[in-house]
Each structure stands twice: as C-alpha cells, then as structure tokens.
Design a protein around this nucleic acid. Structure first.
Lengths: 141, 141
DNA sequence: TTGCGTGCAAAGGTTTTGCATGGCA
DNA sequence: TGCCATGCAAAACCTTTGCACGCAA
C-alpha cells in the first residue's frame, strides 16, 4: 500500500491544521467550511469531504455522529498520544474529549476480555457522560 | 409534561413489535419500511421517522450510525433489563449488542467518577470490539 | 509534463415538514 | 367530537460524483 498520500496542497495543510488545533472537540464539515471562508480562502465542500475521507481511512481522524443525528462530526486523533491503549471520555454537554491513561482502565479491557469473552477496542470506545466542569453547571439542555 | 404518549395505532404497535423482535441487532428505516411492505401493510417513511423519534426521546430506542456514515440505525432498549446500571458491548463485526451486568463494571463507573471527575452515563456508553464468536473468525475487512 | 487535488454544480440519499384525511379515546 | 397519527409529496439537508482546470512534484 502506497503511503505517498499524493501532493501537499495549501487546503490540505490548512485543514489538518484546523483539525489539530481543535483536537479537543469535534468539528463538522460546515464549521470547517466556515473557517476557510473566514480566512479568506474558501474551499469547496467536496474537497473537504474528500480530504476528510482520506484522513479517516488513514486513521488520523475519527468520524461519528452525535446521537445518530444527521451530520457527521470529525475529530483529530493525536498520533503522539497512543489512543490505542487508553480510553476516551466525551462530555455530552461541552463536547470536549478527554483522554484517559490509567492502569485501572486498562484493567477493564482485560476484565471484559477474560470474563466476558469480548475483546474491546479502546480506540473505538468512548465513554459518554458529564465532565467535572459541566456537572457543576445547571443541567439545562 | 404529559406522559399520555397519544393513541395506540396498529402501525405503532407493529413497529415496536418489530424493534423488539430485532432487539439484538440494529435496524434501519428502510428495513422497517421493507418489513411493513412485506407484511402487506405499507407505512410511509414519515410515520416511521416520527415514531422512531418519539421512541428515542422516551428512551426506548437508541439511535446511532455505523462509522458516522449516512443512514441512522435504531435498536430497541430493553426496559426490563435495567440498561441504566450496566454496560453494553457492541461487536463491530456481527453488530450484535451484548448487555453486561457485572459488579466489576459498575466499579468502573465509580472509579472514573472519583478519580477522573467524570460522571459516566452507562446507558449512552457502548464498548466496541469483537465478541467471542467473531474473534475466532478470520478478520478480513 | 503527469497526475492528483480542487471547484462547481448536479445527482443521490436520507430525514423533515405541511396539509388534509383517518382513526383512537 | 377532539386530537393525535398517518400518508403523500415537496422541501431541506448532507454527502457523493463527474468533469475540466490548476498546481505540486
């Protein structure tokens, strides 16, 4: 499999840049589009979708939806921190993603595997709930 | 807030029936539509979407997507087994959903809450991975 | 120069909405 | 009878695709 990844274009670099600087929260295609436009360098949505697809395939970006609703969300996956050996916590309120590396959590993996015969893939598993900040606030919608 | 939930119609009952009998795997709107048609009682998709929306709001059904791709999936949540106090394992290969009630897993909840200040919502959290059956099989794809 | 990346616009699919009608309570 | 549910079809959205041109290597 070729790793060449083609040419480097401004759009491509800028997109990755944007994703990285927003890696602690998710992004949507329209947000990305708005970002490019606000920078004075509009980019067609087709390009965004195509690049995003490639990034997802390369494993650099995660794609998912909130509550299964229409409109995909994208989030950069940090390569340097090993997302394959730890879990993620996603706050349903502020949408921030927390990476948790903790021996106790690794133990979960082992427990489920040994006691329930199920091999968990931490990189795909996300705990949903409320982060410390959002627990304190009023829980309006 | 009224709990009346409106009237009982044949379509509504039949939809819930179908969801329940397929509770171990996910369903899509088009599958539901096809089911109604095959039964000789076609139902408009609008009705399906509207009913599904209500069921999701009532917490009887979970809505999500596979890999964030277009087309939502729906799955019935069993009321009798308390899904708010246990976790779920979803096999990424055969799409079956497993309910796990285990004290050790409840402990995870507590641990994350106490050590990481994050309040996990088990009913929204799903572990992704491979079930016992699928681990044995060849892992193509 | 070659071939991938991009833009634009049309196409394809999914989900939502408006309005009149039908059925449950 | 009153109101919710349904059907149908149009509309609104999101995402993909085809084709010609621009740009990186």
């Amino acid at each position: 499999m070729k790793r060449g990844a083609g040419y480097n274009t401004k759009q491509k670099e800028k997109l990755l840049d944007f994703l990285i600087s927003n890696k602690d929260k998710h992004t949507s295609v329209q947000k990305i589009s708005a970002f490019f436009t606000s920078e004075g360098t509009p980019v067609g949505v087709a390009t965004i979708y195509r690049q995003l697809d490639k990034l997802v395939e390369k494993g650099l970006v995660r794609r998912y939806t909130i509550d299964g609703k229409t409109g995909a969300c994208y989030q950069y996956i940090d390569e340097t921190s090993d997302c394959r050996t730890h879990f993620h916590l996603k706050c349903v309120k502020c949408d921030r993603l927390f990476h948790i590396t903790c021996d106790h959590l690794k133990d979960i993996d082992k427990h489920i595997n040994e006691h329930h015969g199920f091999k968990v893939d931490p990189s795909k598993t996300v705990f949903y709930g409320l982060c410390a900040d959002c627990q304190g606030e009023a829980d309006d919608d």
